[in-house]
Simulated assay, not measured.
Amino acid sequence: MTTAPDTLTAQNRVAAQRIRIVQAQGTVEVHNGEQLIARSSAALELHERGHDVRYYLPRDDVDLTALRAIDTTSHCPFKGDASDYWTLAGDESGTPVAWSYPDPIDASAPIAGHLGFYDTLTITASAPADGAAAAAVLA
């Protein structure tokens, strides 16, 4: 019988093989049409095998007044439980546009306190003007 700590350790080993988190270089912006939802020079890039790169922006760099919290959850075996979800403020359909992992598993710990965004919003990343060095690997 596998104990919970053994399961978590195995989960972190698998996650570490599938996911790589690096500091994004330059500035990442998230827009809904012309409305700026978020802008950050401290975003993280999450590279997950078989998926497009996702940017996670610090909560402090997100205009939370442009979003409305909704009651949705999901689980990823490589990141943990996403229990914070948002839709656009004023969107009565409740379609999620952002999420976060308040307490991710250890292998994905750097994304705690950050929001990811669905591709229904426009997400752009611009290179740093100074030609900064390659990104630092965080996890």
Rank of each mutant, 00 (worst) to 15 (best):
L44R: 02
F117D: 01
A107D: 02
S41T: 14
Q23N: 04
A127R: 09
Y118F: 00
S126A: 08
T73V: 08
L46A: 00
D103P: 04
G116V: 05
T87Y: 01
V30H: 13
Q25G: 10
L64P: 05
A139N: 07
A42N: 12
S83V: 05
G116S: 03
F78V: 03
Q17N: 06
L121P: 07
R18Y: 03
G33Q: 09
T72M: 13
H75T: 06
Q11Y: 12
P110E: 12
A15F: 08
A69P: 04
G116R: 12
D106T: 11
I111K: 14
H75E: 08
E48A: 15
A139K: 11
A136C: 06
A24R: 00
Q35W: 10
T122L: 08
A42C: 06
D63P: 03
Q17G: 12
E92M: 04
A15S: 07
W99L: 09
H114C: 13
L57F: 10
A139L: 05
Y56H: 12
A69E: 11
I105A: 00
A10R: 14
P58F: 04
F117L: 00
E48W: 07
L57N: 00
L44M: 04
R49I: 01
V14S: 10
C76F: 13
R54T: 01
A112Y: 08
L36K: 11
P102S: 03
R20S: 14
A133P: 10
D91M: 15
S108I: 01
I123W: 11
T65M: 03
V22H: 14
L8I: 01
R18L: 02
Q11R: 07
A10K: 12
V30S: 04
T72H: 12
R68W: 11
P128M: 09
A42S: 15
R54I: 10
D106P: 05
A69S: 05
T73Y: 10
D61M: 04
E29D: 11
A132S: 15
T95G: 03
A89H: 12
A98S: 10
R49H: 14
G50E: 07
A136L: 06
A135T: 03
V28A: 06
H114V: 14
A125R: 15
